[in-house]
Amino acid sequence: MAPRRDRCYTREHSSLFEGIYMSVDTATVRRVARLARIKVTDDEAERMTNELNSILGFVEQLNEVDVAGVEPMTSVVSVKMRRRQDVVTDGEDAAAVVANAPVSEDNFFLVPKVVE
């Protein structure tokens, strides 16, 4: 599905800008669920379509905001990113890594066979 354009989406500088209005259909919900690797039943897809549209309708009001020239937030704290030294300080404990694994063997994790 494509975004429905109302007026001109690129005219962000306009205070009259009304942005794009989107809603999802059940097929979109199924596609997104697939992308998120969550199996959904028909009922769930139906219900979630309504819920998602309710939320998307709610967030639609952001289109009222004039964000022309505004930088998106990258971090709420303005500090320099901490860095680590290039020293091996961790690892060397495979048993701890697989300790909680549903299925493991010889410290490998086991998963249903992946075909490439």
Binding site: R84, V88, G91, A94, V97, V98, N107, F109
Partner: peptide, 25 residues
């Protein structure tokens, strides 16, 4: 490098399975 990009586990090639793995990795 000695250690990985975002963790302190060794970046060296050829260890026993999951030995060069931190909880971050």
């Amino acid at each position: 490098s000695n250690a990985k990009l975002f963790s302190g586990a060794s970046a060296t090639f050829g260890a026993e399975p999951n030995m060069h793995v931190s909880l971050v990795d």
